[in-house]
Every structure is written in C-alpha cells, then in structure tokens.
C-alpha cells in the first residue's frame, strides 16, 4: 500500500484525538453526574478508533457520513471541531448541534456529517438518500454509513442493502462489529460467523476486516469508495473490533476479563505506532509530541465547553421549522 506520510501522521493524530476525547468526555460526565447533573447516555468509542479513522481519513469534505449513537469517533474523523463537540456534550449553545442533540446527535452538514442516531439501524435508509442525491445530481460523492452488529439485525439493514445494490447507489455500509449489542453477544444475535457474508444475498461485495488495524480498514474502504465513485454500487464492510468501556456509562459491564484483555493486546493505537516506527515514518519523540498536542487540544476543548453558556430557555422553540 502506498500511503502519503501526511495521511499516516493524520491517522495517528485522529486516533490519539478520539481516544483522548473519550477519556475527557468520561471524566466530564462523571464529574457532572457526581454533582447531580446527569447528561444522558455516553457511548464510548474507545477501542474502535481504527474503524472511523481508516474509513474517513481519505474521504473528501463533500463526501457524507451517517454516524451512530457511538459516534464521537466518526465526527472527529470527518473533521468536526472537538471544541464544538465537547460543548455539545455539555448541552451548551456553542455545541455542534446548539445543544439540541447531545452526544448521540452531532451534525455538521458542511463537513458532510449527517448526524448520529438514537434509533438503531435508522442510518441505513438515510444513507440511501444521501447516496441517491449524489447519483441524481451526477456527482461522484460517496456516503459512508456506520452501524453496529446489533443494528445489523434490524429490518432496515435488509431493505437498505437490497435497494442500494439494486440501484447501485454510491454508499459504503460499515458494520462495526464490536461483539456486543448492550449485553447481547453476537452469538446470540445471528447464527453465521460474519455479517459481511450476508452481502452475497444482495449481490454486492462483502468484506471482513480487522477493525483494529487502521491500515486494513483504510485499504478496504478505499477500494469500496473507488467502486462507489465509479458507479458500481455499494460494499458491505464488517470491521471486527471491541469496545473497552461498558455499553454506556450507566450500564454495568459483565464481560469476561480475559476476553477484554485479549482485545486490549490488539489495541489499534500501539499497533499503528509500532508500524510507524518500524517503517521509520515517525519517531517515538514525534509520536510523543503529537500526543501532547492532541491532549492540549482536548483540554482546550473541555475548557471551551465549560465556559460556554447554556441555551436560553426563550429559544426553546427555535429550529423546529424551516
């Protein structure tokens, strides 16, 4: 694979940023919760960062994505400003959705970020529409739609894959198989080893990827994007990965510790750092410096969020109608 050094460094920066963002977000939530201010559900993307980064780093600004309830990583990878995201988490007027959406609903259409979703499987048909618009207008924009292993069991999965393939819509469906839907393991969700195998039933390619290998994701998505831009229709990509935190902050985690440790050994960040060292692309010192810069940016984002104002209750009815 021939990837520009800048792209590789950007991948590392994004991986660091997502991880640091999630750490800080958890800390802010916990502080708020202890102060009696419950901020709703927070779904951590920690452990799954390579999927969003590998998938989005090479997208164009005018390509679009549909995110999920576990969407901070997607937003960051698509170029969202962590300040605005952090402010959104705290329900501030300066938030990326003006405090009307919260953690699960971050939007920025000018970045091609069409939002997370609180309804499992709801993004798949919305992505059809975004891809349809590109096809209708004759542009070569693509749409990437993320969803989970649990959400792949929704009826919208079937309808959307079928229609996308039938109409050759420029969409890439990326299933983030993190092995669980809340507490339900994949083995209790479907009787086949791979979600990607279902693609055969829709007449489109299905690919299984190591979702903890950012370069593997990058390569698979790159190929799918090429197909979509060329008018050859959708691809279903299943990224096998793992979340480190409980489903969301309030749900007790009863996963096997041996299983968790095994996945942590395959953590996408040290793996990629090692790759960059081995290939003499970045030095340890450069990596350390980058990490430092990212941490500073995240601290600045948290500070921005904290000093920002809450929305004025008089504006509660704004933004309902166009």
């Amino acid at each position: 694979m021939d990837i520009q050094r800048d792209t590789l460094v950007e991948m590392l920066r994004l991986l660091y940023t997502i991880r640091a963002f999630e750490h800080k977000a958890r800390q802010l939530y916990e502080e708020n919760r202890l102060a009696g201010n419950f901020l709703g559900a927070l779904h951590s993307y920690e452990g799954e960062e390579a999927v969003a980064v590998g998938a989005c780093v090479d997208l164009r600004k005018d390509d679009r994505i549909l995110s999920t309830h576990r969407g901070h990583g997607h937003c960051i990878a698509k170029g969202a400003d962590v300040k605005l995201m952090m402010a959104e988490l705290l329900g501030k007027e300066t938030g990326i959705s003006k405090g009307r959406g919260g953690s699960m609903h971050m939007f920025s259409p000018e970045l091609g970020l069409l939002g997370g979703n609180g309804i499992m499987g709801a993004g798949l048909p919305l992505a059809l529409g975004s891809a349809f618009t590109a096809q209708y207008r004759g542009t070569d924009q693509v749409t990437v739609c993320f969803f989970g292993d649990g959400s792949s069991c929704q009826g919208t999965f079937h309808e959307s894959l079928n229609l996308a393939s039938l109409w050759k819509l420029p969409v890439i469906y990326i299933c983030e198989n993190n092995q669980y839907a809340v507490t339900t393991p994949v083995a209790e969700s479907f009787p086949v080893p791979n979600i990607a195998d279902r693609a055969a039933g829709y007449g489109c390619p299905g690919v299984v990827v190591d979702g903890n290998d950012v370069l593997a994701v990058y390569e698979a998505v790159g190929e799918a994007v090429g197909r979509a831009r060329a008018g050859n229709g959708p691809t279903l990509i299943e990224c096998k990965t793992y979340r480190y935190q409980p489903h969301c902050m309030v749900i007790p985690d009863r996963r096997d510790t041996a299983e968790m440790e095994e996945w942590q050994e395959r953590d996408p960040i040290p793996r990629f750092e090692q790759y960059l060292l081995d290939q003499h692309i970045t030095s340890e010192a450069e990596q350390m410096q980058l990490r430092q810069q990212v941490n500073e940016a995240i601290e600045a984002a948290a500070a921005f969020a904290q000093v920002s104002s809450l929305p004025d209750p008089d504006t509660v009815a704004e933004y309902l109608w166009a």
Partner: peptide, 27 residues
C-alpha cells in the same frame, strides 16, 4: 430518473427520501 419505482420497502424508500431531502432534493 425522476419517477422512482421502488421494491416493496417502505422503510428504505421513506428513509431514502429523508436522506435525499437533507442533502438538497425535494422528494
């Protein structure tokens, strides 16, 4: 191109319509 007959999939084509609307078309 402008009169799109769909398979029997309301969730898909209504969802498609919402997605098309937020990206600039008028379904």
């Amino acid at each position: 191109q402008r009169v799109r007959q769909t398979p029997l999939s309301e969730a898909a084509f209504v969802g498609l319509s919402v997605g098309a609307a937020i990206t600039g078309l008028r379904p």
